[in-house]
Simulated scan of single mutants.
Amino acid sequence: MLNCSSISRAAIKGYPQSAQFDGKRFTNVAPRQPLKFGEYLKMFWDLAFNKPKETVPQQQLPVQPITAETLAAAADNSVFRLGHSSLLLKLKGKYWLTDPVFNLRASPFQWLGPKRFQPAPIALDALPTIEGVILSHDHYDHLDYQTIMQLKDRVRYFLTPLGVGDLLAKWGVAEEKITQLDWWQSTDVGEIHFVATPSQHFSGRGLFDGNKRLWCSWSIITDEFRLFFGGDSGYFTGFKEIGNKYGPFDVACLENGAYDSRWADIHMLPSDTIRAFQDLQGKWLLPIHNAAFDLAFHHWNDPFKQIVALASEQRVKLSLPQIGQGVNILQPQEEAAWW
């Protein structure tokens, strides 16, 4: 168990203690499926120019605005969907954010790149006091510079995988606020136990920093509940190992969106999401990584249609709140189709 201030940047320079670090870059347990250079070029060309128009909703999605009154009235230990993988967690009376992206685009540019379908259900400056930010990896749709800059002086803790904390420090986040962990390392903040658990993904924000920072999922544990936040991942055997160590989970927030068979090793297909949920020994599945950005070729609501059908076949309890809607971790409920 690690104290929140126990890992300094100097202590982990080069990350020699990490089994995931090969001396230059971080690696997955299973190698990624190879694509030929021409296949990569075609895929990126298609992403830029050949998407169906249905990848973006043609009308505004239903959103439940989050207000101070909404949060005060919410049960303790609740999850609010902000869009994509951004969640506002009310845990033990304090508020946490996962992978917060409030910017208009998931991109290094303000004028180019995936654009939000619509604004988040609460403005950054309207957020309550945030105890901590939980980050899964460094991709633009999970780690937004502008958002972090507006949060850095208002947040007590930043929990990250190895290397991501170094990036935050470079951006000006106070080092004493940052805890960066390797897979299976953990830290306690108050009554909450956080474990950086594995995922099958990759990292990088530019042409030259590929896999220089680790990626992870998070197992969040208290004496009242167990919550899994998956970040991004392809399906892999690590889900079963996490489930055996830390399950059963009351709610598993798992990726279900921006998928394609060409990159199924790093982004789960809906059928993979169901398998991962079962491996985690989950009680309720709350799909995330959807309904905010246009990042693949499927229709924007295909993730919902597919996961509903699969969950019905497999008798999986599914919670699909609208953007802005809160869900009680201990008493989630099925929602009427809003998509």
Rank of each mutant, 00 (worst) to 15 (best):
D209N: 01
D209P: 03
D209H: 01
N211W: 05
N211L: 09
N211E: 02
K212E: 14
K212N: 13
K212G: 10
R213C: 03
L214M: 15
S217F: 00
S217W: 02
W218P: 04
W218K: 05
S219W: 13
I220L: 10
I220S: 14
I220H: 09
T222Y: 10
D223R: 15
E224W: 03
E224Y: 09
F225A: 06
L227N: 07
L227F: 10
F228A: 11
F228I: 08
F229R: 03
G231F: 07
D232W: 02
S233N: 01
Y235N: 09
Y235L: 15
F236M: 03
F236L: 02
T237Y: 11
K240S: 12
K240F: 01
E241V: 08
E241L: 03
I242F: 02
I242A: 05
I242P: 01
G243T: 08
G243F: 09
N244R: 14
K245H: 15
Y246R: 02
Y246M: 07
G247R: 00
P248I: 04
D250E: 05
D250F: 06
V251T: 06
V251S: 08
A252N: 03
C253L: 00
L254M: 00
L254F: 00
E255Q: 10
N256F: 14
G257P: 02
Y259E: 11
D260P: 01
D260G: 02
D260N: 10
S261K: 15
S261A: 13
R262P: 13
W263N: 13
D265N: 13
D265E: 14
D265G: 11
I266M: 10
H267D: 04
H267A: 10
M268G: 05
M268D: 04
L269E: 10
P270Q: 06
P270Y: 02
P270A: 01
D272Q: 14
D272N: 15
I274W: 12
I274P: 13
I274K: 15
I274S: 12
A276D: 12
F277I: 14
Q278V: 06
